[in-house]
């Protein structure tokens, strides 16, 4: 996943990965522990905020932030358990500042490395606004056997930032999210949305969840909304599609509406694959 994941590389593996990670333009840089320390590395990522990826809150759409955290945290967790690798099992992000200038800096450090899981703590600041705090989060990964996947990498690992694209593709177009309103939102599973394991990229799932929750809260009204917290639990891989997010509003609070989002793989017997809570604020 390390060398096969270079988003600017056009190697054959590109067919099955890299495109979601490259849609939100980010770089990743491993920070080794001090000499003599037996602690794991940490990881610093940097993500640009392209205008077509800004939410109504002014900053990066929260799904984009989640995707970058997943990329940075997943990469770090994988490096931590080499020669084995990981898949993300849960990811929680709380956004405390929506009006970000960018670029954002995503820092992840390993809190616990267990036999079957790795836990990382996430901190995000806005470099364009003097390192103001933007978000915090936690990412938990399950350790697995990488089978035949190539995992070689130079250390410390570095993945550079892709250049801006000449013709930006709208978010919902890129992610195959069907237009609509209401409490059900569908995503068509195109191959470019698969990760190197061949399953729907966790960032694409996060984007579907984010868009679905915002649509459900807006409920057809032309009100600006943005996600301030998202808590994702990946239960099963999504391989077939189409993919459907079903939103139930749990309650409305002064700080936003809290929704439960269940993501089902329609082509795989309607299997429940992801469950999430999302807090959406009307601005």
């Amino acid at each position: 996943m390390v060398t096969r994941h270079d988003p600017v590389d056009d190697q054959p593996t590109r067919r099955q990965g890299g495109q979601v990670g490259a849609y939100f333009r980010g770089e990743r840089r491993e920070v080794p522990p001090p000499d003599g320390s037996d602690q794991p590395s940490s990881m610093v990522g940097r993500v640009a905020i392209d205008d077509h990826q800004r939410s109504a809150g002014g900053g990066l759409i929260t799904a984009g932030l989640v995707t970058c955290i997943d990329s940075v945290g997943g990469f770090l967790s994988g490096l931590t358990v080499l020669p084995r690798w990981i898949v993300t099992s849960s990811l929680a992000v709380q956004v405390v500042r929506l009006d970000q200038l960018g670029p954002l800096r995503v820092e992840v450090r390993v809190l616990r490395k267990g036999r079957n899981s790795v836990v990382g703590a996430v901190n995000v600041v806005d470099e364009g606004a003097g390192d103001l705090e933007v978000a915090t989060g936690m990412i938990t990964s399950a350790v697995l056997d990488p089978r035949s996947m190539s995992l070689e990498s130079e250390r410390p690992a570095v993945i550079p930032m892709p250049p801006p694209v000449a013709e930006p593709v709208p978010l919902e177009t890129f992610f195959g999210i069907e237009p609509g309103t209401g409490r059900t939102t569908r995503l068509l599973l195109d191959d470019r949305l698969r990760n190197p394991w061949g399953i729907l990229h966790g960032g694409a799932v996060a984007t579907l969840v984010d868009v679905a929750a915002c649509r459900a809260v807006a409920d057809g009204r032309a009100v600006p909304v943005a996600t301030t917290a998202i808590d994702l639990h990946y239960l099963a891989p999504i391989r077939v599609g189409p993919v459907e997010a079903r939103v139930s509003v749990l309650g409305r609070r002064p700080d936003g509406t809290v929704a439960r989002v269940a993501v089902h793989d329609l082509g795989n017997g309607d299997r429940l694959s992801v469950v999430a809570s999302v807090t959406v604020r009307e601005l």
Binding site: S90, A92, S117, D231, L250, G251, R252, R253, V258, S277
Partner: peptide, 10 residues
């Protein structure tokens, strides 16, 4: 228990 998330909505 590895982790727990809880949202109180009222």
């Amino acid at each position: 228990t590895a982790d727990m998330s809880l949202q109180v909505v009222r």
